[in-house]
Design a protein around this nucleic acid. Sequence first.
DNA 1: AACTGTGAAGAGGTTCACAGCA
DNA 2: TGCTGTGAACCTCTTCACAGTT
Lengths: 219, 219
Amino acid sequence: MSSPRPRIPEATVARLAVYLRVLAALADAGRSNVSSGELASAAGVNPAGLRKDLTHLGPCGVRGVGYEVVTLRDRIARVLGVERSRPCVLVGIGNLGTALADYAGFGSRGFRFVGLFDAAPGRVGQEIGGQPVRPMEDLDEVVAATAATLGVIATPADVAQSVCDRLTTAGVRSILNFAPVALSAPAGVDVRQVDLSVELQVLAFLGQQRGAAAAEVTA
Amino acid sequence: MSSPRPRIPEATVARLAVYLRVLAALADAGRSNVSSGELASAAGVNPAGLRKDLTHLGPCGVRGVGYEVVTLRDRIARVLGVERSRPCVLVGIGNLGTALADYAGFGSRGFRFVGLFDAAPGRVGQEIGGQPVRPMEDLDEVVAATAATLGVIATPADVAQSVCDRLTTAGVRSILNFAPVALSAPAGVDVRQVDLSVELQVLAFLGQQRGAAAAEVTA
DNA sequence: AACTGTGAAGAGGTTCACAGCA
DNA sequence: TGCTGTGAACCTCTTCACAGTT
């Protein structure tokens, strides 16, 4: 491989995923061209920032005109690796896990769940999105058979670390964790944390701060 | 009010919420003191960064010793405004909405759902977490009666904007949006976006990039 | 001796303004 | 004229190193 390996910043990657979604919708609607201004507004970002993000893919627009929707969509899809669909396992089939397993969005974004796991015997055997929930004992076998390198944890906090350990042992290299605990994993394994109630708390704080600032002006 | 209004950075607020969770657990476990190193490790952050974060609350540790667990917990709780529990409405009671409504974590973090809403007649009347799902028509009334200023959208993408409009009209000032669309709201209304599949996509990309870099070394 | 609080340096990301092309 | 591509300024956040305190 003699690729330049441009190293795309994480913040840009997150936004590319959003642009991809918007472009897919535009393409479905039959649009052929779009400007950075319109795309940025649909994605909720600054137009100049969007253009800078696209720079990481090399020049891909036409000056004075804009971007060709389908071309740009495919280019981003290729860079993000959405073309090949990645096998992914999901542990913890409560309400959140079910929501994730059911979410059609993943399919069109380059992911497929190849295994749904839960420790509760009551849940095992249920079908979700056309797939059975399996017992934790099957984890190693499924990961090995499907070569899944992505795992999602949607269990209660108290078992998340042990689930993480089992996933890494089985061979999973990237983990998305929804349980409200910081996980430790061996070097070479990425863990990404999403904490829903932290999001709400930040939102509430910012709103409170804004309200206080406004009151101060009035005072 | 003659408060100094120190303006706490958003990144710090998010971490304070995490520290608060860890401190609450430590307090429940009967611990009385904790060092920045231990707290940082439990929260998954750098110790120096943690100390800098705490600077925004004013000095609150003892040099050579560490932090008093309960004192620090209460201080962060007061700053984040967790003491008073905030009324919050939730629209879209699918799997994700149900997961959010059921999640006990919110209660202990200063939030209470005072209204669960869904447009589907089939869902209306169901009880979730001891609360009935209501029809969208009741939204204005409930927001007015409870003075809710926080709203959570967990609907499909195609109705999210209209839900957002209804929420802001009803008087909600801060919105957490789980639907994969950028929402536009009037000035004075905060919208915070959480996109679950973007998180997975970023994770997958970083893993792929890491894998590629490793392969390059081997080559 | 241990650990906090913090200035200063550094890295990363965002915004601006404008040059370059169609 | 209109819109992209981009250097440069700006800003925020992170990390380091160490002075200060018990």
